[in-house]
Nucleic acid binder design. Sequence first.
DNA 1: CGGTAAATTCCAAGTCTTGCATGATTATCA
DNA 2: TGATAATCATGCAAGACTTGGAATTTACCG
Lengths: 175, 175
Amino acid sequence: MIAATQSNHPLATVSDPVPAVSAMNEARARIRLAGLRITKPRLAIIDALLRRHGPSSTEHIHQEMGARRCDMVTVYRCLAAFEQLGMVRRSYLHNGTCLYELTLGAAARHYHIVCKACGSPERVDYLPVKGIEQLLQDRGYTEVSHVVEFFGICPKCQPATARGVSVTVPADLRA
Amino acid sequence: MIAATQSNHPLATVSDPVPAVSAMNEARARIRLAGLRITKPRLAIIDALLRRHGPSSTEHIHQEMGARRCDMVTVYRCLAAFEQLGMVRRSYLHNGTCLYELTLGAAARHYHIVCKACGSPERVDYLPVKGIEQLLQDRGYTEVSHVVEFFGICPKCQPATARGVSVTVPADLRA
DNA sequence: CGGTAAATTCCAAGTCTTGCATGATTATCA
DNA sequence: TGATAATCATGCAAGACTTGGAATTTACCG
Ligand SMILES: [Mn+2]
Ligand SMILES: [Mn+2]
Ligand SMILES: [Zn+2]
Ligand SMILES: [Zn+2]
């Protein structure tokens, strides 16, 4: 999609449970297992994702790479490769751009609601799509996957005049 | 998103139940009701969507407009306006580009599975997301909406060697 | 039939994707 | 282990898709 542009969304990110160094080892193992190569950009990208703790834009990942920064094209291609390996999942912003999130460890599958105003993602635990993919395979489809995404205006972004009392966001939900 | 490019997906489209002329009247009514203006490009775009009977790319819509063709930018903006009015809904291809589909009449909400290879969309009747939006509103979100999209390789696009017998696509499912 | 606000057009910038040549990583073998 | 070759990954450049702004045109209301 894609080119939903000119949108520098400030992305709020919250804490993440993954141990860190073991996550890195798992990532390396998965890459090797798929017959892919361990390269400096790939390690740097995974490292950046680990440090960012949550859905991140390519722009932010690129910045987080610091001195180990590589070409943007490489970021896109690595993320696409990681997605195929199931190491990364993406959320879609309302304008079509994407955020990328590591899915290492035994993290439960979950979805997100993304604010249409500020772009910040919040976790949504909701697993209703199971079984549908099997149904589609019965229809003759292969390599079936799916995307579920919620959009809305988050409490912080709502005009203060609209509702006197703003609902506080449950902080125990990590994006 | 997106700029997933260089992909001229041949889009299979199937039959559509909407009466045609009444759909056009409903469209005009909805536009006026929203305080928007009835313009030649908007009518031509709706007409094109009606003739195409299903999820269509901006490229195809533009071509279908024939002599009444307008600037591509106008196509994008009209579709965005229609989407906000709830007259149009979009499907996302796996590469991030979009298909646009009219939602007039009492058409039931449904989703699509889009082939990652040829981009053809097929209808998926599946309504599990009800209630979740309400839950998110309770969290403090407003203007809540969602996207559900399935991806896969359709039977036609699978390497003939893989499976000797190819499953025929149920033709009674309109995209 | 004007007057006013909105929509369209043209232009340009930003984002994402793809092709091709170059460079790096891994497997193989001495 | 150390060198070589095959293969994959990266960077650069070109192209496609989408969005924003300013000026012009159009629709709608008296
Ligand atoms: Mn998450
Ligand atoms: Mn449909
Ligand atoms: Zn927000
Ligand atoms: Zn296909």
